[in-house]
Each structure stands twice: as structure tokens, then as C-alpha cells.
């Protein structure tokens, strides 16, 4: 297999005054063509910023301050805005977290899908035809009529379907779905997840699911990448992540998953302590303040090392963990 996407030591910082505050601290991540990967981590761990950096969509004060993003055989960080534009929406597309704010309120939804194609040179008439097919494909009833509606006439789920149609219009090789269901009703969530997964198979897209809830995407992915405070701390096949997590944080995440037999247990609430603000520069291992396994060695930051069938950034292997 060949790597479609390869992040090497990717760093994202926010400019504040003269100084740069680093938020994403050197992410290494390779996604093979056709693979489906979940990027998991608590809120604020830098998942969205990493993905926006891949798309070249960071805006002031945020910017890439180091590393490379290779898509196919091109380094995106070396491209001009003009060259990037030919890739966005065409080779790589993204579905965003909040469908309520992600569509232009003054533009008919059909036009917003058409635009995703005309931006890449598809003639208007053809784009119009394909738009109707796309709307039908993502499950929007009566596309001819609904294409003329405005976003405010749509529910959250319908808007997210429109967003999906926009993202898939050019049949991108890479699809990034950044928590596409967190803003939706629980019943709608499953439908949207299923729809994206179905279209992913159909188009053979390499897909990255971003989520803070591992349980949601566990069935959909081949691999899981765990982020903590702007670092990748574990990266392993999905089975291994669930059966034998190699990082104490991953284990804590799993323990915090909602138990189907116990509705009262809120997700993630059981990890003691709070994640550091991604900008805090913690000495040593970033998870140390909350880690039950911490030893003296943890005062030095562990690198991402091969561990079982994946990689983990921890000094203490699982067989040495207390309980």
C-alpha cells in the first residue's frame, strides 16, 4: 500500500502579539490509500487544527509553523494559495462540525453544491445536473425543489447532508469528517454516520474521522490515532486499541466510554484531572499530571515508539502498569 497522506512533524501555532504559542506540537501521521482512520482526543487536543492545517484552511492568527503535509506526491505546505485551491474540494474535502453555521445563509443550497464543482472548472449546466443527483444520493427528498431552498429552511441533519454533497461533489481522494454529527440529534447521528460510511465505500475514499468519542466510530475505522494536548500519543489498529491499549491515556479513554448497560456514566468524565490547555508547554510527558502510571522517567518527554502493532509515546509498557 502507498501512503496517500503523510504528516511529518506538523506544527501549528497561534500568533499572539509578537510571540507564537504552539498548539499542535509535531504530529506524525501516515494514512494509506483506501484506509479509514479515526483521530480521537478530548476537546481542545488540536484535532481540528491539525485537519485544517492539512486543508490549508488555517486563518490568522493560526498558521503552520513547521513540518510537512504530503498528499499523494505533493507537499501541500510548499504550495501557493493558488495551487492549494486546485486541491481543496477536489483532491481533499472536509465536512465540518457545525452544519448550522457552515452553509452560506444567503445562498440557495443547490447553488452551494454547484459551486463546489464550478470552482474546479465543471461547466455550470453539467454541475447543475450533477448537483441534483448528489442531493438525491445524500438523501434529500425532491431535489429539484429543495435545491432552491435556503439553509434556514433545513434541519441540522438536512444541512449536514448538503455539506456532504458539497464535499463529495468532486469525488475527492481524501475525505476528512470533523465531528460531523456532534451538533445533531442522536437519532440523526447514526443516519449521517452510515451515509458517510456508505459513500466512502462507494467512492473508495481514504477517510479520516475526527471525534472525541471513540465509541461512535469504532465500527467504521481500520486504525485509531489518539491525540493528547497537541501530541499524537498512540496510533494503532482499531482492534488492538480496544483489546490492548498501549498508552495510559488511551486506556482511560476506553474506560470512560459510555457503558451501554449504564446510561448515567457520562463519557470522558472519569479521567481524573483536566487536559492542559494545548498551549501549556508541559515539561516531560504531557499526560503526566493525570497519569496513574507515571514514573520518574516521565519527566522526560517520550517519543512515539513502535509498540505492539502500532506506536505509542509512553515510557511504561502495559505489562508494567499498576492494575
Amino acid at each position: 500500500m502507498t501512503a496517500l497522506l503523510e504528516l511529518a512533524d506538523l506544527r501549528v501555532s497561534a500568533r499572539s502579539g509578537r510571540a507564537d504559542r504552539e498548539i499542535v506540537h509535531g504530529v506524525d501521521l501516515t494514512v494509506e490509500a483506501g484506509q479509514t482512520v479515526a483521530v480521537v482526543g478530548e476537546s481542545g487536543s488540536g484535532k481540528s487544527l491539525t485537519m485544517l492545517a492539512v486543508m490549508g484552511l488555517l486563518t490568522d492568527p493560526l498558521r503552520v509553523t513547521g513540518g510537512t503535509v504530503r498528499l499523494g506526491d505533493r507537499d501541500l505546505t510548499a504550495l501557493s494559495e493558488r495551487e492549494l485551491r486546485t486541491i481543496r474540494g477536489n483532491d481533499a474535502a472536509m465536512i465540518y462540525q457545525d452544519p448550522m453555521t457552515s452553509l452560506n445563509p444567503l445562498m440557495r443550497v443547490g447553488d452551494q453544491v454547484v459551486e463546489a464543482m464550478t470552482a474546479h472548472g465543471v461547466p455550470k449546466a453539467e454541475a447543475g445536473r450533477r448537483m441534483l443527483d448528489l442531493l438525491a444520493r445524500v438523501g434529500i427528498p425532491d431535489p429539484k425543489r429543495t435545491a432552491r431552498a435556503y439553509p434556514h429552511e433545513f434541519s441540522g441533519g438536512m444541512r449536514q447532508r448538503v455539506m456532504i454533497a458539497c464535499a463529495l461533489a468532486m469525488r475527492p481522494r481524501l475525505l476528512i469528517a470533523d465531528e460531523p454529527t456532534t451538533a445533531l440529534d442522536v437519532t440523526i447521528q447514526q443516519q449521517i454516520l452510515a451515509l458517510i460510511d456508505e459513500l466512502r465505500r462507494e467512492l473508495g475514499m481514504t477517510t479520516i474521522w475526527v471525534t472525541h468519542d471513540l465509541g461512535v466510530v469504532a465500527r467504521l475505522v481500520d486504525r485509531v490515532v489518539v491525540m493528547y494536548a497537541g501530541h499524537v500519543v498512540e496510533d494503532a489498529p482499531v482492534r488492538q486499541v480496544f483489546s490492548a491499549p498501549q498508552h495510559p491515556y488511551t486506556k482511560a479513554l476506553l474506560a470512560a466510554l459510555p457503558d451501554p448497560t449504564d446510561d448515567d456514566r457520562p463519557p470522558l468524565a472519569q479521567i481524573p484531572g483536566r487536559p492542559p490547555a494545548a498551549t501549556d508547554s508541559v515539561e516531560g510527558c504531557p499526560f503526566r499530571p493525570r497519569c496513574a502510571q507515571a514514573v520518574d522517567a516521565c519527566a522526560t518527554r517520550p517519543a512515539l515508539q513502535p509498540r505492539a502493532q502500532g506506536r505509542a509515546a509512553c515510557w511504561v509498557p502495559p505489562h508494567e502498569w499498576r492494575n
Binding site: L57, T59, R88, G89, N90, A93, Y96, S102, A116, A119
Partner: peptide, 10 residues
Amino acid sequence: DFVRTARGKG
């Protein structure tokens, strides 16, 4: 957000 969406479409 919708401006970012539009940029994301190219």
C-alpha cells in the same frame, strides 16, 4: 464558518 466552507471547496 461558511466562509471557511467556501474556501474548502476551492
